[in-house]
Amino acid sequence: MSAIFSLIRRDLALAWRRASEIVAVLIFFVLAIVLFPLGVGPDLAVLSRIAAGTIWVAALLAAMLSLDRLFLPDHDDGSLDLLMASPLSLEAIVLAKCCAHWLVTGLPLIVCAPVLAILMNLPWEGFATLVLAMALGTPTLSLVGAIGAALTVGVRRGGTLVPLLVLPLVIPVLIFGVGAVDGAVAGASVSGQLMILAAALLVALVLAPFAAAAGLRLAAE
């Protein structure tokens, strides 16, 4: 168990010392949203109508940016071989790496989202739901993303394939994430959407480590 925490700690230390990668994800997220009011014009009604969708789409694409770095550095320098030959189970290794990935990308996105929501004139009623929905949705992005990252780890320039593999699988997260925020703004009950997001997270939590581990085993051969 402590070995798993050392792996998370190492990944966090590596991310911290290569902070430019985390910052690049956040800058993409912020810029994509900042450009929207300039693109569609300053009509506040239009902005608040598209706020939830814009924030979610930008978050989804920002999360894709860092995915190809999830396993590739470890694959290239031989660390992945050693991890696979270690007493840890590969599924646990995948889970630990997803956890670290979410802490350095998903969590900062959640922290930034309310600020950007102000910029997009999201009505106040939607703020809490936006944060809650992103807290449930972004871990799913990391977990499902790990499958795509694992499948492309042995492929030359596989990084470009990752979004193509992963985005179709996470569209439900986008639809119900936006649905929850829009519902909250309209004053409707959003427990249904949030529960579906939670269910998607649980399914990903159970299945993604096995799928990604299988992908990594293939890549090692």
Binding site: A13, L14, D77, G78, S79, D81, L82
Partner: peptide, 14 residues
Amino acid sequence: FAFAGHADAVKPLL
């Protein structure tokens, strides 16, 4: 066993 392959699995940032 302990495995030591071609690659050193040494992280440049650590």
